[in-house]
């Protein structure tokens, strides 16, 4: 191999290391050292980096990604050809259906203080001794001050185990509102302008960020209760099975006679890719069971094994859930 190509190869290996998602600070430093050691190293690295950035526009574009997999994947292309008629059918089945996919991370999310990958949990120790457990795809910023411990939950769900400090309230904030405590254990979830809080110990004050006209702004929520904020309206606390409601902490989804569509939309949060179903066609189906959240595809297989539904996997990105007695087949 000529020396120039050898340098390019090394540059490609450095970039591949730094993009792994597991790169350490030490890797960063060692890469910098390598680039500084020789101007040819730096040139080669920039070249590889420029190539990497050519793909930026396609980042997280599900259609683009699935197209490339199909165009390039020999095996998958053959599958698709054999199912020539199935693809057209898929479109009719999807008519009026729901599509579930992870909300993609924005560049701003990537700069947050803490975040957890899709399908994984992350434990975060806070400066005051409190702890957060971030559920799948959560994004969190810290704003601690002398008078207050504020945690901004930009997206996702977390469990807060709050260290007692009467002088400094602990506040989890989302767009929809806040959940404020002195010392307690509770979960907070953010989704589509909605805030959900489940209190497992002590009490939490749940407040709307911008309360609807004529409505109370805050409500005190005791242990064993759920409260929340939807469209600026504070929901009155209701007793809840906290073990089931916080089962995600143990990597489980507990469903007690819940609509299948709800369970599917929960599972979609823990998966990469798209999950489709026709909500109307699945409307009557209800589910009870315990499902593994760290293996959401296994959970889907379990549903397909016990319920009158089947799974159709088109590419690693696209999974379709259909009623078995679908007349349109």
């Amino acid at each position: 191999m000529n020396p120039q190509r050898q340098v390019l190869r090394e540059a490609a290996e450095w970039l591949a290391t730094l993009q792994s998602g597991h790169a350490s600070d030490e890797d960063q430093v060692r890469c910098q050292d390598w680039r500084r050691a020789d101007p040819r190293h730096d040139r080669a690295y920039r070249k590889v980096e420029a190539l990497w950035q050519r793909f930026d526009v396609l980042d997280g574009e599900a259609t683009a990604s699935a197209t490339l997999s199909t165009v390039l994947g020999r095996r998958r292309r053959a599958d698709l050809a054999r199912r020539g008629g199935a693809l057209a059918l898929m479109v009719t089945v999807l008519f009026g259906g729901a599509m579930l996919a992870m909300r993609p991370f924005t560049p701003l999310d990537l700069m947050a203080d803490y975040r957890s990958p899709v399908g994984q949990q992350r434990r975060v120790m806070l400066p005051d001794g409190s702890e957060l457990l971030l559920n799948t795809a959560a994004v969190v910023d810290l704003a601690y001050s002398d008078g207050e411990r504020r945690v901004r939950l930009r997206r996702g769900e977390l469990l807060a185990e709050v260290a007692k400090d009467p002088a400094r309230p602990f506040v989890v904030e989302t767009d929809a509102g806040t959940a404020r405590a002195l010392g307690t254990r509770y979960t907070v979830r953010e989704r589509d302008d909605r805030l959900d809080v489940v209190v497992t110990e002590s009490a939490v004050e749940v407040c709307a960020a911008s309360p609807a006209a004529g409505r109370a702004r805050c409500v005190s929520t005791p242990a064993g209760h759920h409260a929340g904020v939807i469209n600026g309206e504070v929901l009155a606390p209701r007793p809840v099975d906290t073990t089931a409601a916080t089962a995600w902490v143990r990597g489980r989804l507990v469903a007690d006679d819940r609509p299948l569509t709800e369970v599917l939309s929960e599972l979609a949060r823990y998966r990469q890719g798209f999950l489709h179903y026709d909500a109307e066609a699945l409307a009557g189906v209800r589910v009870s069971g315990v499902f593994p959240l760290d293996e959401p595809d296994q959970a889907l297989d379990m549903l397909a094994a016990y319920l009158p539904v089947k799974l159709v996997r088109y590419t690693p990105l696209v999974t379709l859930v259909r009623p078995v007695d679908d007349a349109r087949r």
């Binding site: 165009v71 693809l87 008519f95 696209v318």
Partner: peptide, 21 residues
């Protein structure tokens, strides 16, 4: 030929992901 193929598969995939409507 590659472009035509990409275009065809892109539109099929788009339809599958976003629905007919």
């Amino acid at each position: 030929a590659r472009r035509r193929k990409v275009e065809r598969i892109y539109l099929e995939t788009w339809g599958a992901l976003h629905g007919e409507t």
